[in-house]
Write a protein that binds this DNA or RNA. Structure first.
Length: 1067
RNA sequence: GGGCCGUUAGCUCAGUUGGCUAGAGCGCCUCCCUUACAAGGAGGAGGUCACAGGUUCGAGCCCUGUACGGCCCACCA
């Protein structure tokens, strides 16, 4: 079998080869009983709504780097993969698809039928996402793949719900919720996005019932006036006294409503309001109060015992059937029935304003720009809606309080002196939660300090059904005899007492003397498979709540549910996956879900297991497009990682991702398009869409063939152009990945060079005493790099990892070491020794890079094992012996990627010793080489023309340069004719300086040299003069001499002396 | 309204506790298809570090303010 590598790196071939090897070996399966420190990560489960984009690629690349790194360190490493059912989001995309393809709405189907359709979508995307992760090289333990709605996770959800319900931390509440009238579900506060909209202030007159005139209210939402139950005025308003006890007759509905005093009301400027407050400027001092349709009005209503009259339907149309009392409705004008009922809220607004105008009750309309909450799913304005919902009492100290106390003390503000635990039933959890970068700790803290109870019910079909049953059917009970009923109740009590169900009384219903008040009970069934309990409840006339749980309820359990919680063995056994890998080591995510997700995981894990779900939270940057906009499906600027893998390769994508994972909160990724005709990338034209976003123009002319049009993926998504069969869709890409592609190609070629040399060179054990300066230098540089990389990964600075590895490999190893040893490799006497260093360095480099670029390193590793199974530099760069299938530590899989269990074969390089002297001396050689090259270039000497070089240098540098004569000559195509203290300028030589030495370059053509000498000298002189002036200026400052550290002052003096000396020698 | 972040080369980003001439990749210019690599090699140009003050012997870095951009929270009269 040939060990020769292909001429250029072929990512697709390498990916296939590596994936096959890993797959055959099931290389990433971990067992809790494996040796090593536990190290675990749970994947932030991607939503099954869509395929992964580059944000996910970044997120998962970083997790995989951590995972592979720790696996190589010998840790018992497990990365748990999975996906999230993403309730609203998934149901919405499927509803859209069904509407587009079948022209049907969700409500045209039975619940089960529609859920099956969503399930099909989920199956499709779960596979696609898994394929994407595998193609990216993610080393997840695929045997443990989870889904937030699969049976094991469902069990965890049930158990968690039951415990919280039984402990009184889940309750039923009638509240105003953020209602999305399109998806017809309640949204959590953080699912509401605020957008500035141009609206109006309408000034409407409400007549007083005593005929003494009217008051004027100002509102942005006239349509809600149908539900007004009061008008409020500030008690400090000078007009308040005269209006005390008066009522107004609400127009259209003819409802008599009181005027109440409430200091929430902003006073207009002329009555003492703050002129800087925009509201005070526009206000009339009279606020219409609509408790059913405004959060603040609801609170005012509570304070004044006002009735709540809901005049909207769930689709936000005017309705009399959702809380408008019939006797009250009967008083309303015919106008309501003829013109308003059934109209949506915006049409109703128009019609009501028109009515007021017609009746002369409209004073004026003023434009007003204000922010309005919109649904993050449907993007329509949120309607505050009065309904029954389930809440999780996260405000309880056992949840939010515990989360706060778990914070790392140095990251928590104002926590000094407070004990880490409040004591009591829950003792202090082990360790603290620490954020990287630390600034995100504040987001977490503020959230919990201002937290409100969490609405966990959603009016959806796709999700975990709320496991609560309530009484619905009188006939079921009435038809039973007292004996039968008593027997059923006894069984219910037994189920409660054996903790199979939990009971709560409805809010407001007093627990009577009876043990159970059926009509006002909520019953939570603990176990999904408890058919007996369900049947019993059905017998008692109970039905299950139709709603499902907020997605984040199941995601919040993720670090537990993926590790088999609440399985008894998992909880009880010391060596269970749960107890070995939870707490997980780090959560790696984007900042947008610190509140949505991180918070809930922390609260749940603390509550159920009394320990953190993870120790570190690493928040990485968000990828934006070239215009600073978030990458998203709806904007159409998303990039599919598979496209990048196609254009650049998976390793290239990963390396570039690591390289851009800096400490900042955003990173921009200008997006180019790939012309499907030519494969060439080009930058699309940009236009502004109706929402003001910059998007690529939908149709591009193909650079290759103007007759052919390309539809960008941007344009397609923004709806500006529909692709047709003859319009190929361009793929998004970005030149940012060129960095990684070039790097991989370089690695491939350098490896090719090393391997071919290893084949031809004699095999020798490394013997340090035979090494040259450059050998000692590169080995020391390698160890220095490993040290830097360790520090970088510890701090989650993946950019520093990539940079350190890049600089070592390309700048030091390729540019200098490989070039410098070429002469030695041609010398049979030295080739063996040099080859042993090359082999060890290639080995070390592959291991150093493997976490970032797993495919290419695996493929090269395989070749290296064939060519040089035994390698390493004792004490300097240890490499394991490999390839014999047997060793002291166990079986050898022969994979650089696999280190599970006893297969610890290619561990992370340990930091070897440094060669300080070599690290000091070799840069001098580099300086001289660079100076000669520089001179050759400036003097325009052809690369093929040999030159003669001489150097004036003191004894020590002379010795060092002489020792490296061969390298200098080889790297500069020169003959080093003379080095020493007495060397003088040869006639016609170009003079330059390097490392404080005089360097003379003879071209053999004195006439040409004369002009070149002037050019080189002039440039060098200019540089030195500038330096000299800077240094002189510093030293002429007396304060500097007096106050700066003496060592620094001395250093400045030494530098000045050297610069001046060089300058004088240049003449 | 409250808070967080950013502004460094044409573009995308580094720049440690303040201290040598502020760096990298891409792009640009010159030369080179040298037997690992043109996805490459050698060399080069390009920055008053957003602006205004302040602290300091010394500020890209620390403090105050301003402008612009982004994000989070609160608020829909």
């Amino acid at each position: 079998m040939s060990t020769e590598l292909a001429k250029a790196f072929d990512p697709a071939a390498a990916q296939q080869q590596a994936l096959d090897l890993w797959g055959q070996a099931n290389a990433y399966h971990a067992d809790p009983s494996d040796p090593g420190q536990p190290y675990s990560i749970v994947i932030p489960p991607p939503n099954v709504t869509a395929a992964l984009h580059l944000g996910h690629a970044l997120n998962n690349t970083l997790q995989d780097i951590l995972t592979r790194y720790h696996r190589m360190l010998g840790d018992n490493t497990c990365w748990l993969p999975g996906t999230d059912h993403a309730g609203i989001a998934t149901q919405t995309v499927v509803e859209k698809r069904v509407l587009a393809e079948e022209g049907k709405r969700r409500t045209d189907f039975a619940r089960d039928e529609f859920v099956t359709k969503i399930q099909a979508w989920k199956d499709e995307y779960e596979v696609r996402i898994t394929d994407q992760l595998k193609a990216m090289g993610c080393s997840c333990d695929w045997d443990r793949q989870a889904f937030t709605m699969d049976p094991k996770r469902a069990r965890a959800v049930r158990e968690a719900f039951y415990r919280l319900f039984a402990d009184g931390l889940i309750y039923r509440g009638k509240r105003l919720v953020n209602w999305d009238p399109v998806t017809q579900t309640a949204l959590a506060d953080d699912e509401v996005e605020n957008e500035e909209v141009d609206g109006n202030f309408y000034y409407l007159r409400y007549p007083l019932t005593d005929g003494s005139g009217h008051i004027t209210v100002a509102t942005t939402r006239p349509e809600t006036m149908l539900g007004d139950t009061a008008v409020a005025i500030n008690p400090k308003d000078p007009r308040a006294a005269a209006l005390k006890g008066k009522k107004v007759l609400l127009p259209i509905v003819n409802r008599e409503i009181p005027i109440v005093e409430d200091d929430y009301v902003v006073m207009p400027v002329q009555f003492g309001g703050d002129p800087k407050d925009a509201k005070a400027v526009l206000a009339t001092g009279f606020l219409k109060v609509t408790p059913a349709h405004d959060t603040n009005d609801y609170e005012i209503g509570q304070r004044h015992n006002l009735p709540v009259i809901n005049v909207f339907s769930p689709t936000a149309g005017i309705s009399k059937d959702h809380g408008w009392p019939a006797d009250d409705f009967a008083r309303a004008d015919e106008f309501v029935t003829s013109d308003l009922l059934g109209q949506d809220r915006f049409e109703a607004r128009t019609r009501i304003v028109k009515w007021f105008k017609a009746k002369g009750l409209h004073e004026e309309t003023k434009p007003y720009r204000h922010s309005v909450g919109h649904s993050y799913r449907s993007h329509v304005p949120i309607e505050p809606y009065w309904s029954d919902q389930w809440y999780c009492r996260v405000t309880d100290d056992r949840l939010a309080g515990a989360a706060l106390r778990a914070m790392s003390p140095e990251q928590r503000e104002g926590a000094a002196g407070e004990p880490a635990s409040a004591g009591g039933a829950h003792s202090a959890p082990e360790g603290h939660l620490k954020f990287y970068p630390a600034r995100y700790a504040k987001t977490f803290q503020t959230w919990h300090e201002n937290i409100r109870d969490w609405c966990i019910s959603r009016q959806l079909w796709w999700g975990h059904r709320i496991p609560v049953w309530y009484f619905r059917d009188d006939t079921a009970v009435d038809s039973k005899s007292d004996e039968e009923l008593a027997a059923l109740l006894r069984r219910l009590v037994i189920l409660r007492d054996t903790e199979r169900v939990a009971l709560q009384h409805a809010p407001g219903a007093e627990a009577s003397g009876k043990a159970i008040d059926l009509q006002h009970s909520f019953v939570c069934v603990r176990d999904e498979s408890d058919a007996e309990a369900v049947e019993l409840l059905a017998n008692l006339g109970f039905v299950q709540d139709p709603d499902v749980l907020d997605t984040w309820f199941s995601s919040g359990l993720w670090p537990m549910s993926t590790l088999e919680w609440p399985d008894r063995l998992a909880v009880g056994l010391k060596k269970s996956a749960l107890n070995v890998w939870n707490p997980t080591s780090v959560l790696c995510t984007a900042r947008e879900i610190i509140t949505l997700w991180v918070s809930r995981m922390v609260m749940f894990n603390l509550y159920f297991l009394n320990r953190l779900p993870f120790r570190d939270v690493f928040i990485h940057a968000m990828i934006q497009d070239g215009h600073g906009q978030k990458m998203s499906k709806s904007l159409g600027n998303g990039v599919d990682p598979m496209d990048i893998i196609g254009s650049h390769g998976a390793d290239a994508m990963r390396f570039a991702m690591a390289h851009m994972a800096t400490n900042t909160q955003d990173v921009r990724m200008p997006v180019d398009l790939v012309d499907p005709h030519t494969g060439q990338a080009f930058t699309p034209k940009y236009v502004t869409d109706s929402a003001g976003h910059t998007v690529a123009a939908p149709i591009q002319e193909s650079p290759k063939d103007p007759a052919k049009k390309i539809v960008s993926s941007y344009g397609y998504a923004s709806g500006k152009a529909k692709p047709t069969a003859d319009m190929p869709v361009a793929k998004n890409t970005s030149s940012k990945f060129d960095l990684g592609r070039n790097f991989c190609n370089k690695l491939w070629n350098a490896s090719k060079f090393v391997l071919s040399n290893l084949e031809s060179a004699p095999v020798e054990a490394a013997d340090e005493t035979k090494w040259s300066l450059v050998d000692r230098w590169i080995v020391s540089r390698f160890n220095r790099t490993v040290e830097e990389v360790n520090a970088a990964i510890k701090d989650y600075r993946f950019d520093n990892y990539a940079r350190a590895a890049y600089d070592f490999f390309w700048r030091d190893f390729c540019d200098w070491y490989v070039e410098a040893v070429k002469p030695a490799m041609k010398d049979p006497a030295r080739a063996g020794q040099t080859a042993s260093v090359l082999a060890a360095l290639l080995d070390g480099t592959l291991r150093l890079l493997h976490p970032a670029t797993p495919f290419i390193t695996e493929v090269i590793w395989q070749k290296l094992n064939e060519v040089r199974p035994v390698r390493g530099l004792p004490g300097r760069l240890e490499c394991p012996s490999i390839g014999n299938g047997q060793s002291a530590v166990g079986n050898d899989s022969g994979l650089i990627a696999q280190h599970s269990g006893l297969l610890i074969r290619s561990p992370w390089p340990a930091v070897g010793s440094f060669a300080e002297a070599a690290e000091h001396i070799f840069p001098r050689v580099q300086e001289v080489v660079t100076a000669i090259r520089n001179t050759r270039n400036l003097a325009q000497i052809s690369p093929k023309q040999k030159v003669t070089v001489s150097v004036t240098a003191p004894a020590e540098p002379t010795r060092q340069l002489s020792e490296n004569r061969e390298i200098i000559e080889f790297l500069t195509a020169s003959t080093l004719s003379a080095v020493g203290p007495d060397v003088t300028a040869p006639a016609g030589a170009i003079r330059t300086t390097a490392a404080g030495l005089d360097v003379f370059v003879e071209t053999g053509q004195p006439v040409a040299s004369a002009g070149a000498d002037a050019a080189v000298n002039e440039k060098r002189r200019a540089e030195l003069t500038k330096q000299r002036d800077t240094l002189r200026g510093r030293l002429s400052n007396e304060s500097y001499i007096a106050k700066a550290p003496p060592a620094l002052v001395q250093q400045t003096r030494d530098q000045l002396a050297q610069v001046e000396a060089e300058l004088s020698r240049l003449g």
